[in-house]
């Protein structure tokens, strides 16, 4: 614990260490475990108090699993998550329940994440009921207050999820997450299902709430432009590993990992007069059931050498606060 304390003095709210999450694949008549999906395979990072850490990657890279395992909504295969001095995976049921007040989640599909048979006011109130915050009348007052904070009105309280638009539902999802006044929120693709004009409303709302309540976010998304916009630091995931982590500006101006570079060049930019040279990656993301040996990116990597298929690169700090896992990128070839 002494080490955790030391880390917390750096203002770190969440410290993830060597986190691994495998899902069993069952097969055959006996439903025996025949294989493992290596969704998250040994990742370490920390999230500082009050910051937004972006976690970006393509589908199946393990970014959502990471978010849910940190919140202990999934049991980890191994590794630790320390939240505010407490090892999340070692807590007793009652202690975990108390901790849940401090860490919340916002989902991608706000419709699926709201109980269709419950008025949305009641859904927002659920957390307050569970944790017995205030008297029942006070709770209703609190819910109305939160509804206003996310841009909804009193009369929405008794409405059901199907009566709202996608953007409004996401506001309800956000209201539910902030009702318990948490310190930390995992935002799991919160704007991916929304229309462009609504997406910016929700992003602005998330930023406003962060300023008002001093929230810390883990912002998970596949859209690098969105992540770059909202994050202070960004981690890039590929096939269960974090391959690069740096401050937002560093990552954009000086991406080191070839995958990060390819990802950036693949994103269509709404500027038709801008002519870019694009790196188009060959092939597709391999299956996390049987990830490639050595560096997991080597079959698609434009600069891979023979060494890359054998040796797994370490995740190292090559510049201050800029971590990368690539054999082709060492301190010697970092341009500053």
């Amino acid at each position: 614990m002494t080490q955790d304390k030391a880390e917390n003095q750096n203002g770190e709210l969440v410290v993830v260490k060597d986190l691994v999450k495998y899902f069993p694949v069952r097969g055959g008549v006996l439903r025996k475990i025949v294989n493992w999906v290596q969704a998250v395979d040994g990742i370490s990072f920390s999230i500082r108090k009050g910051e937004t850490l972006g976690l970006v990657g393509e589908s199946g890279c393990g970014k959502s699993t990471t978010g849910r395992t940190i919140l202990h909504l999934l049991d980890p295969t191994s590794g630790t998550v320390v939240f505010n001095d407490q090892n999340v995976f070692e807590l007793q049921r009652q202690e975990m329940k108390v901790l849940r007040r401090d860490m919340q989640i916002i989902f991608q599909d706000p419709y699926a994440s709201l109980n269709p048979r419950r008025p949305i006011g009641e859904s927002i109130k659920a957390g307050l009921n569970i944790h017995q915050v205030g008297t029942p009348t006070e709770r209703t007052e609190m819910v109305l207050d939160i509804l206003h904070k996310v841009g909804l009105e009193d009369y929405h309280y008794h409405r059901y999820p199907h009566e709202f638009s996608g953007g409004q539902r996401q506001r309800i999802g956000i209201a539910r997450a902030i009702a318990l006044k948490p310190k930390f929120i995992v935002c799991d693709e919160p704007v991916s299902a929304l229309d462009v004009s609504i997406q910016s409303q929700v992003l602005n709302l998330l930023q406003d709430l962060q300023d008002e309540f001093g929230l810390t976010y883990l912002f998970i998304a596949h859209n690098l432009s969105v992540v770059e916009h909202i994050s202070d630091r960004v981690a890039v995931m590929y096939l269960g590993k974090i391959i690069e982590l740096a401050s937002r500006d560093d990552l954009y101006s000086n991406p080191l990992h070839p995958y990060t570079k390819a990802l950036m060049s693949a994103i269509p930019i709404p500027k038709p007069s801008l002519r870019r040279t694009r790196t188009i990656l060959k092939g597709e993301v391999p299956s996390p059931l049987d990830p490639p040996s050595g560096c997991r990116f080597h079959p698609r990597c434009p600069i891979a050498t023979e060494q890359c298929s054998v040796e797994e690169p370490e995740f190292v700090e090559v510049m201050k606060d800029h971590y990368v896992a690539c054999l082709g990128v060492g301190p010697q070839n970092v341009r500053i």
């Binding site: 909504l73 975990m96 849940r100 989640i105 994440s113 709201l114 109980n115 957390g127 999802g173 318990l180």
Partner: peptide
């Protein structure tokens, strides 16, 4: 996902069974 959401709020299993899933 609303079951996951209830878990994230700290709801007990009994509560999830009775008030989230059964209805």
């Amino acid at each position: 996902e609303y079951v996951t959401a209830a878990k994230a709020l700290g709801a007990s299993n009994l509560r999830i069974i009775i008030s989230e899933i059964l209805p």
